[in-house]
Every structure is written in C-alpha cells, then in structure tokens.
C-alpha cells in the first residue's frame, strides 16, 4: 500500500486544475486539439510491424517495454518520456530490421533520445545507461545507434502521446480524481 500512497501524493498524478491553471492555455485550445488529432493519426501504431520483422516477436517487445518501464522508474523520469520512448521504438520497428541481440540496445537508446528531448534536469548519462544494460553494449555503440535512430526517423520527435490527449479530454469531460486515475491506469 505504501506504493499507492506515494503515487497518490506524487504531484504529477494530481488532476490538472482547470480554472486557475494558466498552462491549460484555453485561448488556443481549439487549434491545439485540431493539430494534436492530425499528428496522432500520423503516428498510429501499425500492426504489420511484426510481419516485417524477422527476429523480433510481439512477446519480445512486451518484455523490452517492461524492462524500459523499470529503468524509467529508476531514473525517476517524466511519464511523457516513457510514452515518447515507446513511440520511438514502435516507429523504428516499422521501418528497420533489428536483430535479436541488438533489440535492447535500440530500446535503451530510444529512452536516451526521449529523455534528452523531454526532460529538464535529469537526463541520464551514457555511462549509467551502459550500467543498466549490464555492460552488454559499449558507450560508442549507444552513440552510434542514437545517430542511426535519429536519421531513420528524420528528426520527427514531436508526437502526441495518449497522456496529452487524456489531459485534453478530461478537461472537456470534467472527470473527477478517481476516474482520472482509472483512465491513467488504463493507458
């Protein structure tokens, strides 16, 4: 139960307030929501990625994501970073053949890129990432893969995460704290 209470007292899990929160930028809401919908159509997850991949299976993806969630929790990163990481991994899986031994390398590098893009202070260092991989890969390998992923995606990192969409919807639907937590758990 201690885990649940820390979750509940964590500030980022609180319901975003509507009236006194200047960050909800109500004046621009209509245009922002239109743009977010347009973006999210483009970044939809395609099911044919695993028919395209020869070595990677759906089960391996879920194991990798479990591990990423662990690492993400250890580094105390933002939730937004996790969604961006998953989006990067999925998009790379769609367009690039990855071998079984290199899959974790791609995962950890995606986390590295996402945290560089999204985080304010707590960007993990490369040597820490090498450590969490149990020294399976070297620093140079991570940096090389970073360049590869970025050029594969063509620097397209601006995506709409499910979390951002939920925050928009909850303001229109006027969810209370309990239902908001349930929705966050579901995504």
């Amino acid at each position: 139960t201690s885990g649940v209470t820390t979750l509940l007292t964590n500030k980022s899990f609180l319901l975003p307030q509507k009236s006194d929160n200047p960050q909800s930028v109500n004046a621009y809401k209509k245009e922002i929501v239109t743009y977010m919908k347009e973006k999210s159509c483009r970044s939809n997850y395609k099911m044919n990625a695993f028919q395209f991949q020869t070595e990677i299976t759906e089960k391996m993806r879920s194991i990798l994501l479990d591990w990423i969630v662990d690492v993400h929790f250890k580094f105390k990163l933002d939730t937004e970073t996790l969604f961006l990481t998953i989006s990067i991994i999925d998009r790379v899986l769609e367009i690039h053949q990855i071998s079984k031994s290199k899959f974790q390398l791609y995962g950890v590098t995606a986390l590295f890129i996402a945290s560089k893009y999204e985080e304010v202070y707590s960007v993990p260092h490369v040597k820490d990432l090498v450590y969490v991989c149990d020294n399976a890969y070297t620093k140079e390998e991570i940096l090389a893969t970073e360049g590869k992923i970025i050029s594969l995606l063509g620097f397209d990192l601006l995506t709409t995460s499910p979390l951002r969409m939920l925050n928009v919807y909850q303001e229109t639907a006027k969810l209370d704290q309990k239902n908001y937590m349930l929705a966050r758990y579901l995504i």
């Binding site: 560089k116 893009y117 260092h125 490369v126 620093k139 991570i142 940096l143 360049g147």
Partner: peptide
C-alpha cells in the same frame, strides 16, 4: 559523452 545535444534535437 552525450551524443547529439538536446537543443539540437
């Protein structure tokens, strides 16, 4: 050490 800088990204 840190690859592509975050401001460039």
């Amino acid at each position: 050490n840190e690859g592509v800088p975050s401001c460039a990204l």
